[in-house]
Structures are given as C-alpha cells and as structure tokens.
Amino acid sequence: MHIAEGFLPVTHAVGWTLAAAPFVVHGARQVVTEVRERPENTLLLGAAGAFTFVLSAVKLPSFTGSSSHPTGTGAGAVLFRPPVMALLGTIVLLFQALLLAHGGLTTLGANAFAMAVVGPWAGYGAYRLVRRLGGGLLPGVFAAMAVADLATYVTTAGQLALALPDAETGVPGALVKFLSVFALTQVPLAVGEGLLGVLLFRALTVNARPELERLGLLAAAPEPTR
C-alpha cells in the first residue's frame, strides 16, 4: 500500500497531506491524553504500536504469485479506537519513508490516509458491527484486522487511480487495474492478519483482563478466572 516517493502529482500529494493531517494531530492528542490520564494503559498502547511495526515490516507471499505486507492497524483501533492509530500508523510510515525508501515524504499524506486513517476506521467499524450482531471479542478482532488490512489497500488503489486515470477508460478503468494488483493478493494476507490478531487478543484476555475490562472490550467478570 506504499505509494512510492514522488509518484503522486503535487496537487494530490498536498491534498492527501491536508486530508490526513487533522487525523494525525487529533491522534497525537489522543495518545498524549491516554498516557497522561490512564498511564496503566501505556503498556498496551506500546503493544498496539509494536504490532503495526512488526506486521508492516514483513512481506508475505500470497496465492496470486506476488507478495505483500499486512498493516496490523486493526488491533490498536479495537483497543484504543481509531484516532490513536492515526499517529502510530503514521510513525511507521515515516520510519519506512526515511530509512527504507519505502513509501515517501511526498506520499506520506496519502499513505497515512490509507493505512492510518481509513484502515483503522474501517476495521473499527467492522469490529463494532460484529459485536452488535452478538459476536464475541475474538470474532470482532478478526473482522477488524482483516477489514483494516483490505480497506487500506483498496484506498491505495483508489488514490492511484484518481491520480493516474486511464487514457481510455478514465478513473474507473485505472481503479480496476490497480485493484487487480492489490486486492486479490491481499485477501489471504488479511485472513492471516485476522488470525494473528486473534492470537494477540487471546494472550491479552488471559494476561491483561483488567485493562480489557476497563477499555470496555470485555464484560467485568465477578471472579477472575484461573
């Protein structure tokens, strides 16, 4: 989902930066508030950031004969709501733009909008939907991880299509082309990411039950289970 450095026209680069900036600033405020008012959650906040850091560094093969990387933003979106991930996801993207020549500074806005804004919000929406339909925490987490991953890549395809419409078929034609690169490859990765999220939250429900209860993810148990 990383649009390479310099690949977006200046107007698009500026536009996406302006679109992403308020989310990132708001996210930064949320992180500061979280750490200040609920310092007991700092550990989990670190886990959410670390999870994105690992997952977005690992490129995995897919059934389409190409490889891609997960995003890992769904976990933090479920734990701390999406704004927090706007900052954490952007930090990951900045690290990769500066040190890995992966993504870029001119495309940071667009990439942040896809991975740190749309992904977490879509994932959080999926989580809420599953919970409202009566699903438990783990099915909700699975949906959040998978949907955040897929939504990020679909957004990237859309951004590229808007910037580079096809000569004959326009934006829709270009969208089909870019989606054919990203979407199918990403499906098995999104499932794998969902399973990893479930693994993480299984560990958290056992070891961080008080935190998950305080965050409203689990109903408070009368007596802690042994």
Binding site: S68, A101, A174
Partner: peptide, 29 residues
C-alpha cells in the same frame, strides 16, 4: 512466480499509466 511485491508492481503500473516521479527518496538503502 517471482512473488514480486505489490507495492513495486503498482509503481511499475503507475509509470505505465504516465506517472512522472518528481521527488527522490531522501535516503535509499
């Protein structure tokens, strides 16, 4: 298959679609 990364494939496609990179990475490994 070569399992090329989708990000690189998308960049190639973008260039076919007429993208003209106007900025280089500040640091490349």
């Amino acid at each position: 298959s070569e399992f090329a990364g989708t990000d690189a494939t998308a960049a190639e496609l973008a260039e076919e679609q007429g993208a003209q990179p106007w900025f280089e990475s500040v640091f490349s490994p």
